[in-house]
Simulated assay, not measured.
Amino acid sequence: MARRRRRNDGGHWAVLGGVGLLLVVLAVGGAAAYFKINAHVMDAETLCPAEGPLGHVVVLVDKTDPLNFTQNEAFQVLLEKIITQEVAPGELVSVFALGEDYKTTAKPLIEICNPGDGSDKNALTSNVKRLKRQFSERFRSPLLAVSNELQAQHPADHSPLLEMIQLVSINGFRAHGIEQNRRLIIVSDMLHNTPEFSMYKGTYDYAAFSGTPYGRKMQVELPGVSVELHYVLNSPLLQTRRHLKFWEDYFSRAGAKVVAVRPMEG
Rank of each mutant, 00 (worst) to 15 (best):
L92I: 08
E111W: 09
R140Y: 15
F35H: 11
P142W: 09
G17N: 09
D120H: 08
V225A: 03
V261G: 01
V57R: 05
K121L: 06
L161T: 00
H12K: 15
R216M: 12
A2G: 13
G211R: 13
L16W: 06
P115R: 07
K201C: 01
L131R: 14
Q180V: 06
S235Y: 10
L98H: 00
D65F: 00
N38Y: 09
A260Q: 11
E163D: 07
F197Q: 13
V61D: 01
N8M: 11
D249P: 01
S252Y: 07
G90P: 13
S169R: 07
E111M: 14
S252K: 05
A145Y: 12
L60C: 01
L167H: 08
H56S: 05
F251W: 09
G202V: 09
Y231E: 07
G29N: 09
P66F: 09
Q166D: 02
L22P: 04
A156R: 00
V15N: 13
N68I: 08
E248S: 05
P108C: 10
G90Y: 12
T194L: 02
F135E: 02
M1E: 10
Q71N: 02
S210C: 04
E51P: 02
V259A: 04
L54Q: 10
R216W: 04
G211K: 15
A156L: 00
I170N: 06
R7D: 03
S136A: 15
F209I: 05
A2H: 12
A256H: 03
S226I: 03
P115D: 02
I112F: 05
T212D: 03
L161P: 00
T46Y: 06
V19I: 14
V258Q: 04
P108A: 03
Y34K: 13
Q151S: 06
E196D: 07
E86I: 02
F69M: 04
R216A: 14
G118Q: 08
K121W: 01
A97I: 00
P160Y: 06
N127L: 11
L229C: 06
D249Q: 14
H158I: 03
S94P: 04
L144V: 09
